[in-house]
Design a protein around this nucleic acid. Structure first.
Lengths: 247, 247
DNA sequence: GCGTTCGCTTGATCCACGTCAACCACGGTA
DNA sequence: TACCGTGGTTGACGTGGATCAAGCGAACGC
């Protein structure tokens, strides 16, 4: 129950609750590996928290960059828009993941970040993060790892877009979501999609009809059960086999 | 004429020549923006230089990561291999660009880096880079920008793979190469491709035949002149128009 | 309650690119 | 000079996924 405007005697309680040092995502998020003492120094830095309503932008392409954002709760997508009107979803982000790393390069955001459900984020002023990471080696190193992980993730998506066919892409997508939900303590076999078929398609380089057909196919094969956005995975190995099966 | 094994009285000369502080790529590479004094500190760190023959690996996926590499001269590709045998080229890198950033995340390289022509690289021990970037703020910030730029670049490739058709992809590819050659003082309109049609196709998510056909088409249209790997761009705007033209 | 909208599914058709195959140009080697 | 291997081009054909179109159920506003 974090509040942007805590009241009276609740203040200290709320502050404790919303601090990195007390956040149950800290092992997934930026604070990973920090000592208690280091955590409290990070708490000072990550003081701004904000709620973003479903459908609202956290930031837009072109805006000046001055902070990265950690997702405290909720679900986001990032997308890029080309001059000619085409756009593509470049990623879906969930609690504990960072948003805005792309903005460091030009000091302007290069994509839009949009909440797919009511969400809460922690703003991390970037210049202050640089200062602190000079002092806390663990923080510096972990931040580098996070950026590098993003690069590796993107290579995975390039692989997917470049070499996989429609059903393989969707299988890979579902398995990836499942694995990330698991890491957050949710069921690996049952979850709600926060995004539409069109957004999935955009991310996977497919049209929404193709995504829909692939879902139906998976259901027929008994790999999953689909009800709108509610997904149950019935046969993980089936999906995995599908993914690794050379054309 | 930098040598790995400089002789006698040439030593001091060679050392000067291969130092970051005297490298003509320093404005493109890691040393960007550093003062003279800072540059000499970076020189200490970047002491190992190595030649990589055409076709040889700089590193392989799975190997332990302990350094990133700046390309001093030459041309590389990076590729990823899936278990099922599929592979994809994830990038082409030229002088002044960094290789190995993907390895930070897991402390193992996640792709292969292969020289496409005889090349020279500077090895930058990563842990020492972290130490130095705590002391030199400019270096720290620029390194972050470089990593971020890599992320932005990858988003561009995802865009290309997800939304563009064959000819648009190839046009984007040629324009990107041209722009990077220009930044290095080479002709923007005339260059040699270091990679095969198959490697281009792998990078662009196309088959080599499709790449070849697109080259022929561009030639017919008068946009470029192709002779094997020798490319002359005759109509930049034609290529640009092609790229931005919604399907 | 009812209409409207949005997201999704499914079918029919089309086409861009993959696949298969033949052939050619170039460079290295015997 | 002849031979061979590698990389590139081009043609004929097949197909996976895009496109176009119709219909349906759930959510929402009135």
């Amino acid at each position: 129950m974090a509040r942007t405007q805590p009241l009276n005697q609740e203040i200290s309680l709320t502050v404790i609750k919303t601090a990195c040092s007390n956040c149950n995502l800290r092992e997934l998020c930026l604070p990973f590996g920090l000592s208690i003492e280091e955590l409290t120094r990070l708490d000072d830095l990550v003081s701004t928290r904000r709620r973003i309503k479903r459908g609202d932008h956290l930031y837009r392409a072109g805006e000046a960059f001055d902070a990265i954002y950690a997702i405290r709760s909720g679900f986001f997508k990032t997308d890029v828009l080309l001059e000619d009107g085409r756009d593509q979803v470049t990623g879906f982000q969930m609690a504990g993941e960072l948003l805005g790393l792309d903005g460091i390069s030009t000091e302007h955001h290069t994509c839009n970040a949009i909440a797919l459900e009511d969400s809460e984020i922690c703003a991390i002023p970037f210049s202050r993060l640089e200062v602190l990471s000079r002092e806390i080696h663990t923080l510096q190193h972990h931040f580098h790892k996070v950026m590098s992980r993003e690069i590796v993730r993107d290579h995975g998506v390039m692989m997917l877009l470049g070499t996989m066919r429609a059903e393989e892409r969707l299988a890979a997508f579902l398995l990836n979501l499942s694995q990330r939900f698991t890491a957050r303590g949710f069921s690996h076999a049952e979850f709600y999609l926060r995004m539409t078929r069109e957004e999935i398609g955009s991310y996977l380089g497919l049209k929404l009809e193709t995504v829909s057909r692939a879902f139906s196919k998976f259901q027929e094969e008994g790999y999953i059960a689909v009800q709108q956005k509610h997904i149950r995975i019935l046969n993980v190995n089936g999906l995995k086999a599908l993914m690794n099966h050379q054309r």
